[in-house]
Simulated scan of single mutants.
Amino acid sequence: MKAKAVRFDRTGGPEVLELREVQVGAPGPGELRVRVDAIGLNRAEVMFREGSYLYQPSFPSGLGYEASGVVEAVGDEVSVFSEGDAVSVVPAFRLTDYGTYGDHVLVPAAAAVARPVGTSPETAAATWMAYLTAYGALAEDGRLRPGDHVLITAASSSVGLAAIQTAHRLGVVPIATTRTESKKQRLLDAGAADVIVTETEDLPDRIANITGGTGVRKAIDPVAGPGVDALSRAISPGGQLLVYGALDQRRTPLPRAQHFPALTTRTYTVFEVTTDPERLRRGVAFVNAGLTSGSFTPVMDKTFTLDAIADAHRHMETGTHIGKIIVEVPH
């Protein structure tokens, strides 16, 4: 069938993205064909388009990790989904193999989850990357106990906001960081117990003041780079620094051990959860429980249409957004 999909033939700025007419065939074994209603944008896709992601695109390339829609066709060896099912696509594949920026797309059935009844396509597209990332970073390893402090950097992102809500669900005290004063009140309104403006405040000193000198039990950080040094000085002995991104492309140093006794550092990506069927099942149950109870409410920033995908990427690059950028796909 004919479909519209975003493609690019070289790495570069948002201008390389083009909406093209493509052929989308029947789903193969283990695949679904999904009519896409909404797409959630992620920083990883900007980095992939720029050529600065974990791996390089192969051209012509599509992109997109996340979407919501309706199953149109089911491939062999798929027993969980049927035509007409409302689903969300979660990041469980390489962008060189599949992509969600289109009106009809093929995706692995293993990367689809049922969309909760009553959930809009836009909300569903804003949910899974953010909340599964927060689940794996905060809830799964059992390190955090009620009353512990957790430091959430770049907290105005969709993952950061999901992490604030996840911390509250775990009974943990979320401390957020943001670079400038402009987002501070929004983060307090979103549930952060305290907000540190890194452009004007000393992070370790502020953490010591907030926690009574004990430090945070865990810090989760998508930035990396030299800034992890200051983060590590804010973590209590025996705590953990978890780095889940690389927005700062500079080398990330190993924190100096003499300043941070018994500090555990590790890298993490959501793929640890989404590519393991049992961990994904637990993560989906955790997120769905939060959505049902009302303790999880995805924050959406601005909505674009598919033919304005370059503008959507430009908006993400400004860094002014708070929460998820959504692309609607009319039919």
Rank of each mutant, 00 (worst) to 15 (best):
T123S: 04
A124V: 09
A126R: 05
A130D: 14
L132Y: 00
T133W: 02
T133P: 02
T133G: 08
A137Q: 13
A139S: 05
E140K: 09
D141I: 01
D141V: 00
G142H: 08
R143H: 02
G147H: 03
G147I: 00
S156G: 13
S158T: 07
S158H: 12
A162N: 05
I164V: 15
Q165R: 09
R169L: 04
R169M: 03
P174K: 09
I175C: 08
R179Q: 10
K184W: 02
V195F: 07
I196W: 02
T198M: 12
T198P: 13
T200P: 10
L203H: 11
D205F: 01
R206Y: 04
T211V: 10
V216C: 03
V216T: 10
K218Q: 14
A219W: 07
V223A: 07
V223M: 11
D229N: 15
A230T: 14
S236I: 04
S236N: 00
G239Y: 00
Q240C: 13
L241C: 07
L242A: 12
A246Y: 14
Q249R: 15
R250C: 02
R250S: 15
P255F: 14
A257M: 09
Q258E: 12
F260H: 13
F260W: 06
A262L: 10
A262D: 09
L263F: 05
T264L: 09
